[in-house]
Design a protein around this nucleic acid. Structure first.
Lengths: 145, 145
DNA sequence: ATCATTGCAAACTGTTTGCATCAAG
DNA sequence: CTTGATGCAAACAGTTTGCAATGAT
């Protein structure tokens, strides 16, 4: 049986609340990519009138708890229910997002390679590199030509 | 002899103006990394009272003309007088930026590898990946511990 | 004389915050 | 009962824009 959202929240040190249940429930339905604004609107359509600031607040909270992942879309932050490692393809024109499995070069992920190389060379302490890619999706390619 | 800034601007299809001369001249002194705000303040200290919006406007203009490069710093756009390919290390704590020569894995740059791989796999048209890295510079590492 | 650039203030976008009210533990 | 979450409006940062005045060609 599925773990209740209440429990899932609890396990991550978060209180239950109705907005939290709605938001987390939405992300858990399947893989989702939503900005604060788009999520706010989607939930409103479903009859959940959360305030926009509540949406922002909870996206941060869920992200901090590790329940969703944040990445930079075109101008706005986007939240992803898929928290396992993968890259994003982000369409410059329509903003749509596609997941891309992690790539390896010579048996190593570019992320690890870059991070290690940079740390060795520079003396900096380097974060996990972000390897999301901007581009144009097939739809927009067709529409443009 | 050095090409005049007036000429350099002209060659790139840009009109001459005093703000443009001051800004481009500043970047040409040596490698610089400046945000709009920091550039505005630096120039003010030197006695050049450009308006902030003029600085914004011209940074965009010079970037569009290919005379400087733009990348995303911590929250704000940063402009780089070094337009040849290289990576950036960006300090999360103090915002300082260090240049990093282009890295190769198995004889290929990760940029090219990633772009090609993504295009093959996805059918998207993919931009040149951005491989700038966030981290903590040695200074801030020392100060923090 | 024409057309781009400047400076200023106002607008805008995405996001955060202060605060009184309300709900969870 | 105590603490944290909500909703609203106001604040905020970075950037862009409208427009009248000015400057470059």
């Amino acid at each position: 049986m599925k773990e209740s959202l209440r429990n899932l929240l609890q396990r991550h040190g978060l209180r239950y609340s109705q907005p939290r249940e709605v938001i987390l429930g939405y992300f858990k339905e399947r893989d989702k990519h939503e900005s604060a604004e788009s999520l706010y609107l989607t939930l409103k359509e479903r009859g959940h009138n959360l305030s926009l600031s509540t949406v922002y607040l909870n996206l941060n909270t869920l992200r901090d708890a590790g329940l969703i992942r944040e990445f930079q879309g075109t101008g706005e932050a986007v939240y992803d229910s898929n928290i396992s490692p993968h890259h994003h393809l982000i369409c410059k024109q329509c903003g749509s997002v596609m997941d891309l499995p992690v790539v390896s070069i010579a048996g190593e992920t570019p992320k690890q390679f870059l991070k290690q190389h940079a740390e060795k060379v520079s003396g900096w302490q380097v974060d996990e590199p972000n390897l999301d890619l901007l581009g144009v999706c097939p739809n927009c390619q067709a529409r443009t030509s």
